[in-house]
């Protein structure tokens, strides 16, 4: 119960935050929330289920392009895109989960890098469908109506921020329920010892595929939100460097600790803002940080703190 209370307070604080800060800061906060969704999603498949993925950027992009292409071709709204992005990305997650049934460790890592690269090639080269290097623009989400009555107009920065905040709360709640359910326990069992998991009667195929789908769907949701709030998509927002950034957030915070990747995302997403003119070095810093943390503290900051508290 205490967890829910703390979470509630945090979200209440974040909800009123736009009244106290400027537009730029609101934008930064919104970006932090995108990364929180991505890092928590990656933690499900890698931290809990032990299946490696460097393809977060790809699923993020699939969600974003689903929204952009549906807007262009069907003129649908964000309320359609959110479930659609989750479903399309989730289906691709299922597709990538199939190799994970047979491959382990580095082989799986290579396949996910190949997948990430293929998705990038498709969105940057297939100009007639995806807009190529230029990407696709997106109009405002428009008014939100119930029975013909306009509740509020979508378009202001704050409305996107609140929507993102609500979706972050929802995805965190779902993830929390997942890792504390029977399924979440099976994921950890698969991570610890797959042979044993199978020997005690667990269906490891179902375990791995559900983890991949959950991860991909969450990244897809983050993609839809990003596409709408940035008013468009360009391929360079969904590269392997995004995947690297999210891996760094998860590893630095602590794999499989739930709160760790959230804190990692907040810290590493805000870091470039604090660096001022050194912000262009952020990927360099992420890379070095990844090497250092994984060498000196592979369990991450939260993992280390918990181990210390248990002693």
């Amino acid at each position: 119960m205490r967890v829910y209370l703390i979470a509630l307070l945090a979200f209440a604080g974040l909800a009123v935050a736009p009244f106290g800060i400027g537009g730029y800061e609101t934008n930064v906060l919104m970006m932090v929330l995108f990364f929180v969704i991505l890092a928590v999603g990656l933690d499900l498949v890698t931290g809990y289920c032990g299946q490696f993925s460097f393809a977060t950027g790809a699923f993020y992009g699939i969600g974003a392009y689903t929204a952009a292409i549906m807007t262009r071709d069907f003129n649908t709204t964000i309320w359609v895109h959110l479930p659609a992005g989750a479903i399309v990305a989730g289906l691709f997650g299922l597709l990538l989960g199939i190799p994970a049934l047979r491959l382990k460790g580095h082989f799986l890592a290579i396949v996910t890098i190949a997948f990430q690269t293929i998705v990038y090639l498709v969105i940057s080269q297939w100009t007639s469908f995806t807009g190529g290097q230029v990407g696709l623009p997106m109009p405002n989400a428009g008014p939100v109506t119930v029975f013909g009555v306009t509740l509020f107009e979508f378009g202001s920065l704050r409305s996107y921020y609140w929507l993102t905040l609500a979706m972050t709360a929802l995805t965190l709640l779902i993830s929390w329920r997942l890792v504390n359910s029977r399924l979440g326990r099976e994921w950890v069992a698969i991570r610890d010892d797959e042979t044993l998991a199978s020997a005690v009667g667990l269906d490891t195929t179902r375990g791995k595929l559900t983890a991949f789908v959950a991860y991909a769907a969450l990244a897809g949701v983050a993609g839809v939100l990003t596409a709408h709030s940035l008013r468009g998509v360009t391929p360079d927002d969904y590269t392997i460097w995004i995947s690297a950034t999210v891996v760094a957030m998860m590893v630095v915070g602590g794999r499989g600790t739930f709160i760790g990747p959230i804190l990692g995302a907040v810290f590493l997403a805000i870091l470039p803002e604090l660096l001022g003119k050194f912000a262009e070095y952020k990927m360099l810093i992420y890379g070095v940080l990844l090497v250092l943390v994984v060498t000196l503290m592979p369990e991450g900051v939260v993992g280390r703190l918990r181990a210390r508290a248990a002693r």
């Binding site: 490696f52 891996v247 760094a248 590893v251 990927m283 940080l289 994984v294």
Partner: peptide, 28 residues
Amino acid sequence: KPMKNHDATSSIISSFGLAVALQNAALV
């Protein structure tokens, strides 16, 4: 050298981190 007592995923992450660091060092 430092990865001998780590699990396989750590060495994957570490070399991936090194790749990202080298690319961005070259960029700078």
